[in-house]
Amino acid sequence: MKNSNFKVSRRYFISRTSKATLAIGIGSSMIGSAFLTACGGGSTEEGGVILRTGFEQTPLPYDYTALEPHIDAMTMEIHYTKHAAAYAKNLGEAAAEEGVDVSAPLEEVLMNISKYSTKMRNNGGGHYNHELFWKIMSPNGGGEPTGDLSDAINASFGSFADFATQFENAGKTRFGSGWAWLVLDADKKLAVGSTPNQDNPLMDVSDFQGIPLMGIDVWEHAYYLKYTSDRAGYIGNWWNLVNWDAVAERYDALK
């Protein structure tokens, strides 16, 4: 009987300790600290401009039709003006309600999201994720990365093809709605994983953590009008849109 009670207590202790460790997050690592410094308020450094995310929705850098035929114009318009706009609006409300300084980088909030409300988590994540998503796509995208980013992908995954397979699998196997990511982790290595809903790897509550270099939205609203239930087809075609220059800029700013 005593042995049984010990096992229960030990499981509880391990569970609580794991959750406490998880809540520390990527922000406590050296790469996380460097990332926050690069994103720091009022930064005029090039890296800070590239990495920093504000609290307001920025203009879409291309027309709704620009990503045809891989993402249709109606999906882009609805996605940007309805879904993403709602996240930005609700984030502004949450920031006002919780006394957040909106002149500071949103990344600071996300790295400490366990201290904030569910409204902040859902809408802060949704806003950050979409702001990154628009930036790392381009009508002139596609192909493969070059330079240091290419070398890092080869070193971490073996080849670009192996990386692409892992990334696609992360998106295809994400249960329900969420995102697949390429990140720079706490050990300064590239890693692939996914998060549910509008969570992202910056969050101290996430079980997959790192500094996002690129991410793909696998919520149905991102692809259903064109692909219906064919998430794999959407992900496969999405490679034609990836702006590797933008992804490499993020990597170089962190490196």
Results as ranks from 00 to 15, higher is better:
Ile14His: 09
Ile14Tyr: 06
Thr17Tyr: 08
Ser18Thr: 14
Lys19Phe: 08
Ala20Arg: 13
Thr21Trp: 15
Thr21Tyr: 14
Leu22Pro: 03
Leu22Cys: 09
Ile24Asn: 10
Ile26Lys: 01
Ile26Cys: 02
Gly27Trp: 00
Gly27Thr: 04
Gly27Ile: 01
Ser28Cys: 08
Ser28Tyr: 10
Ser28Ala: 15
Ser28Gln: 11
Ser28Thr: 08
Ser29Lys: 06
Ser29Trp: 01
Met30Asn: 12
Met30Glu: 14
Ile31His: 03
Ser33Cys: 09
Ala34Glu: 15
Phe35Gln: 04
Phe35Asn: 05
Phe35Lys: 03
Phe35Pro: 00
Leu36His: 04
Leu36Pro: 00
Ala38Glu: 11
Ala38Asp: 08
Ala38Gln: 13
Ala38Trp: 00
Cys39Arg: 00
Gly40Glu: 12
Gly40Leu: 01
Gly41Arg: 14
Gly41His: 11
Gly42Glu: 09
Ser43Asp: 04
Ser43Leu: 02
Ser43Ala: 11
Thr44Lys: 14
Glu45Ala: 13
Glu46Asp: 08
Gly47Ser: 15
Gly47Ala: 15
Gly48Gln: 06
Gly48Asp: 07
Gly48Val: 08
Val49Ala: 13
Val49Met: 12
Val49Trp: 05
Ile50Lys: 03
Thr53Ala: 09
Thr53Gly: 02
Gly54Glu: 07
Gly54Pro: 05
Glu56Ile: 05
Glu56Gln: 10
Thr58Asn: 09
Thr58Leu: 15
Pro59Tyr: 06
Pro59Gln: 07
Tyr62Leu: 02
Tyr62Glu: 04
Asp63Glu: 14
Ala66Phe: 12
Glu68Ile: 08
Pro69Gln: 08
His70Pro: 01
Ile71Gly: 05
Ile71Asp: 02
Ala73Cys: 07
Ala73Thr: 03
Thr75Pro: 02
Thr75Tyr: 00
Thr75Ile: 03
Thr75Lys: 00
Met76Lys: 03
Met76Cys: 11
Met76Thr: 09
Glu77Phe: 10
Ile78His: 01
Ile78Arg: 03
Ile78Gln: 02
Ile78Asn: 05
His79Val: 03
His79Leu: 10
His79Met: 10
His79Gly: 08
Tyr80Pro: 00
Tyr80Arg: 00
Lys82Leu: 12
Lys82Ile: 12
Lys82Tyr: 06
Lys82Asn: 11
Ala85Leu: 08
Ala86Ser: 15
Ala86Leu: 14
Ala86Pro: 00
Tyr87Met: 09
Tyr87Arg: 01
Ala88Met: 05
Lys89His: 14
Asn90Glu: 13
Leu91Ile: 07
Leu91Cys: 07
Gly92Val: 03
Gly92Leu: 03
Glu93Gly: 07
Ala94Arg: 01
Ala95Thr: 03
Ala96Trp: 02
Ala96Ser: 14
Glu97Gly: 03
Glu97Gln: 12
Glu97Cys: 07
Glu98Ala: 12
Glu98Trp: 06
Glu98Phe: 09
Glu98Val: 10
Val100Tyr: 00
Val100Trp: 00
Val100Gly: 02
Asp101Tyr: 05
Val102His: 06
Ala104Phe: 04
Glu107Ser: 12
Glu107Val: 02
Glu108Val: 12
Val109Phe: 04
Met111Ala: 05
Asn112Glu: 13
Ile113Tyr: 00
Ile113Met: 05
Ser114Met: 04
Tyr116His: 14
Tyr116Asn: 05
Ser117Thr: 11
Thr118Tyr: 04
Asn122Val: 14
Asn122Glu: 11
Asn122Trp: 07
Asn123Met: 01
Asn123Lys: 01
Asn123Pro: 04
